[in-house]
């Protein structure tokens, strides 16, 4: 049971990141491979605020999400001119640079030694030190993010995003400032995934740059592709499958020495096969 609780918690946290990425890729067509970087900014921001400034979890997490959003604002503006594949490369570069900073700015982040001792949150008097309680917290946040996604997409704002997806030039001609929309959704997405980073940090009680690499961003990308573009539900299902099924692989009997590589084989296959035969993913409304 404990194991199930753990896996579900990881699914919830990763699910938040996946839903936030869907806002970018699925709804707006911005293929970003930098979610892990913003998760890292959220995680480290929250941790430093909590440990050095004594700020309680919720405030620290919200504040670090704001910081991530601010950084996304600047980056989003800088990356406006990048299109398609170049945008992808730009985000890869962003992730690499953020990761390098987390790794090498010793004095702030302790580099590869990471930051231990992150306590579980106490929100509104309730302590979440118990794993099951924490899972419920994560599930609640996931639900909130899901609701936010739904709200955004049902609104006018969401409709413009879809239009940007389909034909950016057309909608720009109609007078919509597409740059603003793209930056705003980038900021929102970054803030959401940053919050998931804070949850991650407080769950494991220890953070380390190894959790925020380009490979982690690619993993979330694979989830969104699997789940389907344009569907938050798909993102969550995709998360369940990739995280849950991969864990299940442990029990199938692959020797542990290649299990890690077998997972990579599967997930490489997913990327290839889905692009070839199921570009819409499982529940997607759009294809890349």
């Amino acid at each position: 049971m404990d194991y199930a609780v753990h896996i579900l918690t990881m699914i919830a946290i990763t699910g938040i990141a996946a839903v936030s990425l869907n806002l970018l890729i699925g709804e707006t067509g911005l293929v970003s491979v930098a979610q892990a970087a913003f998760a890292g900014i959220g995680a480290y921001g929250m941790t430093l605020l909590m440990l050095h400034a004594g700020i309680p979890f919720l405030a620290a997490a919200l504040f670090s999400a704001l910081i991530a959003g601010a950084i996304a604002l600047i980056i989003g503006a800088i990356f406006l001119s990048l299109r398609e594949v170049y945008y992808v490369f730009g985000t890869v570069g962003l992730n690499m640079i953020v990761w390098a900073i987390l790794l090498n700015w010793d004095s702030l982040t302790r580099g590869p030694l990471g930051i231990p001792g992150i306590t579980r949150p106490e929100v509104l008097g309730i302590s979440f030190a118990d794993n099951t309680a924490f899972l419920i917290l994560c599930a609640v946040v996931l639900l909130a993010v899901f609701a936010a996604h739904y709200a955004i997409m049902k609104s006018n704002f969401g409709r413009v995003l879809h239009a940007v997806r389909e034909d950016e030039e057309a909608i720009a001609v109609l007078g919509y400032k597409t740059e603003v929309y793209k930056i705003v959704i980038f900021v929102i997405s970054a803030a959401l995934v940053a919050f998931s980073g804070s949850l991650y940090a407080t769950y494991l009680s220890y953070i380390n740059p190894s959790a925020f690499t380009v490979n982690d961003s690619i993993f979330i990308l694979a989830i969104v592709i699997l789940g389907g573009l344009g569907s938050a539900y798909g993102a969550i299902v995709g998360t369940c499958m990739l995280v849950g099924a991969f864990e299940a692989l442990r029990f199938i009997g692959f020797p542990a020495s290649i299990a890690g590589d077998m997972r990579q084989v599967f997930y490489g296959l997913i990327l290839i096969l889905f692009m070839l035969y199921l570009p819409r993913g499982l529940f997607g409304k759009f294809r890349i």
Binding site: D216, A256, S257, G260
Partner: peptide
């Protein structure tokens, strides 16, 4: 044997499976 991959998330999942 489980694979920690010298990374946080993997090590956490690996240890959790072993312990739980």
């Amino acid at each position: 044997y489980e694979d920690g991959q010298c990374a946080s998330t993997a090590a956490s999942n690996a240890a959790n499976k072993l312990m739980n």
